[in-house]
Write a protein that binds this DNA or RNA. Structure first.
Lengths: 218, 218
DNA sequence: TAGATTGTTAATCGATTAACAATC
DNA sequence: TAGATTGTTAATCGATTAACAATC
């Protein structure tokens, strides 16, 4: 029995449920109804129940959901109940920032190495994580299992690096480069396009500016 | 006459259109049909035409779209045809990485200052951009116009900082803190929740793992 | 048992795709 | 003019919300 196909919209909401449940746990809340959670999160109770029931019946009629249980179940669904080994390709600004950001580790995302081409960076350690020579990528990957490769290289070398990673068997890429990678079907890519996010914000600013402008004229 | 309400789905696609049109321009392409663009971008031609026609008729029957013209029109729609002044609050890993990332400037997003509470950081400059004392935030904002505040502070101080920014008249926040900010209706927030992005990737990895597992058994 | 709240089906809403008349 | 391709209306598809029977 396979999972039925889950829509992207649902997958996007799961981490947010997980976050709110974590906060409820921290404040000692033991159980919560879809209705109470919906008010906290500003979504409909119906949506919460629909979303969760894609994966199973985690609640109990007349009671609601046990916070800790649901938190752990969502963690399992998200695959963060286990260790995920990562490498970061590109030791520039973002590569180093991500390496320094120790929060990922708390969720089981362990950075095993950083790769770069610059001889100024190679050999140095960031938070105990070695910066290795990009030349040695293939050798490194043949020696250990890496679940996720983080791509923080310039746009013009991103595809080439991705190809090398995929040739080594990497199946998941967290892509910070500002382009759409071409990858085989069995490789998953999650994009973080910061400039596109910033442009969306900019859109909303100018949309507001337009509205105010026309408002004054009416 | 006001813009009609544009759906979020459309807004998210605009920066990607802009990016592809920019690349076409660079390779010297003068005109393109919705059909050719749709093949490049892996969307339907219908969607491209529908999206664009939310904002006006930019094409010409029998000809298609002029690449440079459309590129510039989308830039206007996105509000990136003008300068946007930004400040970054939080001079940690991400704050510094964003400050160092000079690509934003090319799109008119100018970082005017960096703010921090740490005396080790205050007074130092990153790429010519001063790190100021968080204490002086209100004074600074009274003296110049800032369009966007970038929030790269720890989760537990983010709301407090946001409140201060809003009190100073900031209307747009690019939020990297891992929480949902509470802001008035006239303030726009764009979130970059990196851990949620990483969890979505993790979900897809484990989804694939499940499928393969069940495949072997069948 | 009565009350509460889920799980799930049905209804609605919105977004995407298809089709085609308008027009360059 | 004929061919190409848009702008736009109509049809379809999918996601969200509402409703309610099941059940703890």
């Amino acid at each position: 029995m396979e999972r039925k196909e889950i829509s992207n919209a649902v997958i996007k909401r799961l981490p947010r449920y997980h976050r709110y449940l974590g906060e409820l746990m921290e404040s000692g809340v033991e159980r919560i109804s879809s209705n109470d959670l919906s008010e906290k999160m500003n979504v409909t109770a119906s949506q919460i129940r629909q979303d969760l029931n894609n994966f199973g019946g985690f609640g109990q009629q007349g009671y609601g959901y046990n916070v800790e249980y649901l938190y752990n179940e969502i963690a399992k669904i998200l695959g963060i109940d286990r260790q995920n080994n990562m490498i970061i390709i590109g030791g520039g600004n973002f590569g180093q920032a991500l390496t320094n950001y120790s929060n990922f580790e708390r969720r089981g995302f362990m950075i095993q190495a950083l790769f770069d081409v610059s001889h100024e960076r190679i050999g140095k350690s960031v938070r105990g994580i070695r910066t290795l020579d990009m030349k040695d990528l293939e050798e490194f990957l043949s020696g250990c299992h890496i679940d996720i490769a983080v791509l923080t290289v310039p746009k013009n070398s991103a595809q080439e690096v991705a190809d090398r990673l995929i040739a080594c068997g990497i199946k998941a890429i967290w892509n910070f480069a500002h382009l759409d990678l071409k990858v085989p079907d069995d490789v998953v890519v999650e994009n973080v396009h910061l400039s596109e996010s910033l442009m969306q914000l900019s859109y909303r600013i100018s949309e507001k500016r337009d509205k105010e402008g026309s408002g004054q004229n009416s």
